[in-house]
Design a protein around this nucleic acid. Sequence first.
DNA 1: ATTACTAACGTTCGAGTAT
DNA 2: TATACTCGAACGTTAGTAA
Lengths: 219, 219
Amino acid sequence: MNDCRVFMILKELALMGSMNRYTMIHTSELGKRVGMSQQSASRWISIMEKRGLIEKEKYGRNIRVKITSLGRVYLKKAHFDFTMIFGDSRRVELRGEVMKGLGEGRYYIMKEGYRKQIEEKLFFEPFPGTLNVRVYPNYRKRVKEIREGEFISLDGFEENGRKFGRVRAYFATLNSYPAALIVPEMSQYRDVVEIISDVKLRDKFDLKDGSEVLLVIYL
Amino acid sequence: MNDCRVFMILKELALMGSMNRYTMIHTSELGKRVGMSQQSASRWISIMEKRGLIEKEKYGRNIRVKITSLGRVYLKKAHFDFTMIFGDSRRVELRGEVMKGLGEGRYYIMKEGYRKQIEEKLFFEPFPGTLNVRVYPNYRKRVKEIREGEFISLDGFEENGRKFGRVRAYFATLNSYPAALIVPEMSQYRDVVEIISDVKLRDKFDLKDGSEVLLVIYL
DNA sequence: ATTACTAACGTTCGAGTAT
DNA sequence: TATACTCGAACGTTAGTAA
């Protein structure tokens, strides 16, 4: 069955915002996001339109697409499957304020040993730097809860005789934008957490030191 | 990318229980479930083993597989994607007791007009019959909540001049087993709900009239 | 009964390119 | 700029069958 192609692209379109409204897309960008050529992405868009999973319309030289109710049902089913697999998984909210970093985050993120695992296990290319968030006191016991929850393990490694320890990662959102929380297993701090993402979060949300942010961690 | 094949099969294996333990599988059954031949399923299992997503071991003439932590991460990512798409979707619990049906459910389910849509939009072949559940009084206001929530629409149709109305469907579980709740749009009853599934639920859970069941509806 | 190899067959891919 | 067509090459599929 080639249904899986259709699912993959449908999911990507949903993530690009085509769920409830017509969204302008570029077949080359879509192709890049799902790992195929512009030509293939274009072809699949046509196939999916014929199958009634999306609506497509020309928009000047571009196209706009919108997921149909049938397409939505396809996605819903997959979502249901994952709910069956993982149960009703926990979500933990944290609030805190942005803190000046020490530039260390950038140093670590750039290490090939971590970078590679971030791409492999968190599925994004990290912006080279971390956002440090000081969690407000009344949320700090939740940090402990997170540490004890299910995590994604980024293995430690050695480089030029220097050891880099194992790091725990968690899928998360910062102000609703997809990101990840990373916690070195050796770290002591319980009130400061580090966030990585595929963009510079400081710029995306115009964050200054002291800005309040909302984190949601998905265990 | 053929990653989507891997995802699809990994999800299926997870649904078959390979997430946390070695599970005996049959490549022919797996193939049927994902819509490919026994030979292809066998080949993909080998590929996924090489890629470190599952562990495989011979078990007599059969094989046993177990999803690795890397495989789990793949699934987790997809689950996270769906959480981004649908937000933290609601789940509603109902409790009630099994009720004698009037044989009507069977009559409706067997109508090609509904059957086809069940396979297309709910993704299972329905057992020909419905399980009627009388919801306990203190759960009845939740039935209203469900009716007003997001539903999957099974369109009405006409057959030999007789009209069959539109039906609302919801993904659900009965005693944790995947099923669907169906509600004819015209129906009056608010205290009795009808459940369909791919198996005879009465037999699966050895239900008699009056047996208590737990329903979870995923809106 | 299984799983899994081989070989012939289809499908899908993407470079080139028209629009 | 875009999207989307053609077509030869690459890849995935399955029937047959060995183990």
